[in-house]
Design a protein around this nucleic acid. Structure first.
Lengths: 92, 92
DNA sequence: TGACTAAGAGCGTCTTAGCCC
DNA sequence: GGGCTAAGACGCTCTTAGTCA
């Protein structure tokens, strides 16, 4: 599989996690994964072995303070732009 | 399932598809789905019955001329911003 | 502690085979 | 034509049970 064929999800999770100072296991537990499997699953996600579903990405988005779209941005420049986006408050 | 729990993927695919004038079936075929099942799968995606994988989203991204991150943006304002992003060409 | 992985169980997607307007 | 859906086959994810620095 060539580099450009891979999804950016794993790399973006790792970037945002490290910027927040979490370990893989701690972040997984905070996001609701059972503590006995949090380390394994987070590692699989960051290494693109498996892909998390969108509901899980929403939890990371809340914990790591970046929009969900951030995790799916292929271009670094766009990821940077998205990470700075702050939504206007929506009381729904 | 409350509105805020749903993923934006289906809605974003539909938005971008309609803006480009494709039918569900035609877009699915262009993206590489077998013509006998393109209509069913595209409908399932747009109605959030099933979730396409990232490789498929990359094909839609190329066909519909929006970055992959667009399909995962929850906030309309951010989706709009992302859709206008054009990566700077780096000639090296 | 922190990160990683093989392999089977379990669950979500894809295909089939229709439907409606 | 254009869009939609139930249900089973199938393939990917999650859990288990470890390893390694």
């Amino acid at each position: 599989m060539s580099k450009s064929d891979r999804s950016p999800i794993g790399r973006r999770i790792r970037e945002a996690r490290k910027a927040s100072g979490f370990t893989q296991e701690k972040l997984g537990i905070e996001a609701g994964i059972d503590e006995t499997v949090a380390s394994a699953r987070m590692s699989q996600y960051e290494n693109n072995v498996h892909t998390p579903d969108f509901q899980f990405i929403k939890k990371l988005s809340a914990l790591l303070q970046v929009p969900t779209a951030y995790f799916y941005a292929e271009e670094d420049e766009l990821a940077e732009l998205i990470s700075k986006f702050k939504p206007s408050i929506n009381l729904e």
